[in-house]
Design a protein around this nucleic acid. Structure first.
Lengths: 285, 285
DNA sequence: TCGATTGAAGCATAAATTATTGACCGTCGA
DNA sequence: TCGACGGTCAATAATTTATGCTTCAATCGA
């Protein structure tokens, strides 16, 4: 039972001094944190031993025990009331920018998680795994999109799925000419309407490869070509925030695929561990 | 902030004994109620004073203060035991992988936000802005770290702060030889102990440039050299999750700097808009 | 490689907090 | 009136916490 409720319920059967202690605690529970038994006694003009006896009578092991319990009770109680208001106020001042940024990002990530079904993620993971084992994985992105492609390619390589990575369209067209059935091409393109990329996509499909696109959640020509389409949702009125959100939502999406790949196959998992160590050794002699 | 999160976030920076204390508290927070500092010390086979010093280092008034805080945190956490069980169960079934991933990421991001003060972020933003206007910005990262460097460099360039970006140490050494006072070198290095990067950092400082490092929240030689150090906190037992968390926390940190840069100066803001449009036109004719 | 320096950990101990003891006082019922 | 009783307090014992000092080990620079 909450110590405060207990104190209140026994208050009637208490002596005068005890009742004063009880009242003080009930009214100033939050002050208790900084009060020793002696200080509490001083505040009430009574002896410290009375305070201790009071706590023991109530069934606590001693003063610190009561104090601890009251702390818990307060924490439980204002979980979502006063504290939160205070916290919000503080937050508004101290970390306005970063906290609100965090909030936007979370929102985008959640939306993105929502519009990509688990099945799609799984299908993408499977396609990559298969192509990694029996064929090739191609990957391309232009400009900013190259960053995501690059980072994902690095991750895949740790899993034993190396990829052919290009960051301009003409070279990619050349690379893709070597593609065959079962291969996978992953195209990153935020707006999905770059003609060269579409051309490469079509070319790749003609060669019976599976095309996976990663674009915004709009209808766009690139996505229309895809066997599997990963979609990213990210919106903000402030134009400088938008790319931040896009990137973080995209990253989150790719993280999901990566995790599914890791957890899907024990052997890949083992390989990852080995690779991680290897990389670490090479980079930090 | 919750004392447990705090402990966790500073765990890396701790000595062996301190880390054992931290782990014990994290794993047995609920036992703390019945432990005096001496008992805790005995349980770990260390001295009582180490426990007290541990608490003080973390910013608590002393052992009882830490204990009280932990009590509050626990109380807040399992506010309504039933609810929590239900929540956990739901989570485990419905959205296990992606939601738990999201949760880990959030935690890392929060920790990371916590260990980098707003002042540091602002200082970094200012340094970059100044160097962008009157000098040069250099940027380097090896391996995975290059990804983050690259993406941040792209962002900066949109703000009218182009940077000299290298992804191997020898070339960077050459580039840096052109550095002077007021220039900025941003070094990305997860573990911060790559000798070549340290050498470049020292060299750069000799030339009176300002060194900004981005590393894990450990004490590492690179960070020790820095004028300004950005720190990333990210932990998970699963080795394949760890890099995901690192990346997302780092990204979050950089997002913070980016936003501060955007919001700090109206002119930069305008330039960003213009650049965004320009890029869009070039990429998608 | 060798001091010099730094920082972590423990020991001893001081300081503080808490718990107990025993004396005193007022009340109440015999 | 007197003794029993409950309540309070001052004094003090016991426990717990905090700090000064020493030692040891790792790091750094010469």
């Amino acid at each position: 039972m909450s110590p405060l409720v207990k104190i209140r319920s026994e208050r009637d059967q208490m002596s005068a001094v005890e009742r004063r202690i009880a009242d003080f605690i009930l009214e100033n529970a939050q002050l208790l944190r900084d009060y020793s038994s002696q200080q509490l006694a001083n505040a009430l003009g009574i002896s410290q031993s009375s305070v201790v006896k009071f706590t023991q009578k109530l069934g606590f092991k001693g003063y610190p025990d009561l104090k601890y319990s009251v702390g818990e009770a307060i924490a439980r109680a204002d979980n979502g009331d006063a504290t939160q208001v205070a916290t919000q106020a503080t937050a508004a001042f101290a970390e306005s920018a970063s906290a609100s940024l965090w909030h936007c990002k979370s929102e985008s990530e959640e939306e993105t998680r929502h519009i990509n079904t688990t099945e799609t993620l799984q299908a993408v993971a499977d396609a990559l795994a298969t192509a990694g084992a029996n064929g090739k994985v191609f990957m391309i992105g232009l400009g900013d999109d190259d960053i995501y492609a690059r980072s994902f390619a690095l991750r895949l390589s740790l899993l034993g799925i190396p990829s052919v990575h290009n960051f301009d369209a003409p070279r990619m067209a050349a690379s893709v000419s070597a593609a065959g059935a079962g291969d996978v091409l992953l195209v990153f393109s935020e707006h999905g309407n770059h003609p060269a990329l579409c051309k490469i996509g079509r070319f790749f499909r003609e060669r019976r490869g599976r095309l996976i696109t990663v674009t915004r959640h709009t209808s766009n020509p690139l996505r229309a070509l895809a066997d599997l389409a990963l979609l990213v949702s990210a919106h903000d009125d402030r134009p400088y925030i938008q790319p931040v959100l896009y990137q973080s939502a995209l990253q989150h999406l790719l993280d999901g695929v990566f995790v599914q790949l890791c957890e899907g196959d024990e052997q890949r998992h083992v390989q990852l561990l080995a690779n991680l160590e290897r990389v670490q050794h090479m980079l930090e002699p």
